[in-house]
């Protein structure tokens, strides 16, 4: 095989894989009207995804809040502005840190789970069997996971946000001797609708994209049991990176539209 052929071949496989990815993303999305019919599968997925990330996120959110408040608090104190701390912590956590942290956690745990599950179905011919029996993998497998992923990531994010803000409050009252009411006033007064909206839109988008990426790698698995392992790894890497990139793009988009 010469170089031109090799480039041609890898270009083709790249295009093919991208098409598959797009089919999974939008095929699942298009199937969401069937979500009620597949409520059992959705519920099963939610219980599996939710329980696997819950506790980790509680701790992660809390510690991020602690660290953030500690770092910012001491800096702000030098300028005599430590009363702003509630505001900075809350906005930072709700707009950025909560969604990204929860997204990455879910991408890591859910991603490997979904990719491995679908991957093993793929290598044992279950995906083909489903198609042969008149089923559609996008409807039966991808859509329930996308819906479940969004439905778990949203509350997990809010939970993570809450823990972050509580972490900040702990630092404020203990290390920085700020009265509790000052912290909460500063935190809540500054919150605008658009901050909350951003905090809501991101997890919905991340949940969808994480499930789609993981399902894509799962369904694209080749080469037996070893292939399942590498699909799971790839899903985690691609999922976490995509959360960070999508966070930037979404942030930019939202800033441009809303300020």
């Amino acid at each position: 095989m010469n170089t031109v052929q090799a480039i041609d071949y890898s270009l083709r496989s790249f295009v093919e894989e991208s098409q598959h990815m797009a089919r999974v993303m939008f095929g699942g999305l298009r199937a969401t009207p069937h979500a009620w019919r597949f409520r059992r599968q959705v519920a099963i997925q939610i219980s599996r995804l939710g329980t696997s990330a819950g506790w980790v996120l509680v701790l992660a959110g809390l510690f991020i809040g602690l660290v953030l408040a500690m770092e910012w608090g001491t800096k702000l104190e030098q300028f005599g502005a430590k009363l702003l701390m509630g505001r900075i912590v809350t906005i930072g956590v709700i707009r950025e840190i909560g969604p990204v942290l929860a997204g990455i956690m879910v991408a890591a745990r859910t991603g490997s789970m979904v990719a491995a599950e679908l991957g093993s179905m793929k290598v044992t011919d279950q995906i083909d069997a489903l198609r042969a029996l008149g089923g559609d993998p996008m409807v039966h497998l991808v859509m329930p996971r996308q819906v479940a992923s969004v439905m778990t990531l949203l509350p997990l994010t809010l939970f993570c946000d809450l823990m972050g803000v509580i972490g900040g409050w702990l630092i404020a009252i203990s290390l920085l001797n700020t009265p509790s009411t000052f912290y909460w006033h500063s935190a809540l007064d500054s919150l605008q609708f658009k901050d909350l909206a951003v905090g809501f839109i991101k997890p919905i988008f991340f949940g969808w994209i994480i499930a789609s990426i993981s399902a894509h790698y799962g369904l694209y698995t080749r080469g037996g049991a070893a292939g399942v392992g590498s699909s799971a790894t790839r899903a985690v890497v691609a999922g976490t990176l995509t959360v960070l990139v999508a966070d930037f793009i979404l942030g930019k988009l939202i800033l441009a539209l809303w300020g």
Partner: peptide
Amino acid sequence: RHRVGMVFQGGALFDSLTVAENVGFCPMEN
């Protein structure tokens, strides 16, 4: 495809469904 049935090499039963749900997949789905 509905006019054709296929038995896969390893069986390819859906491992998240019971045997009954597997066997009844076609009438339930179609």
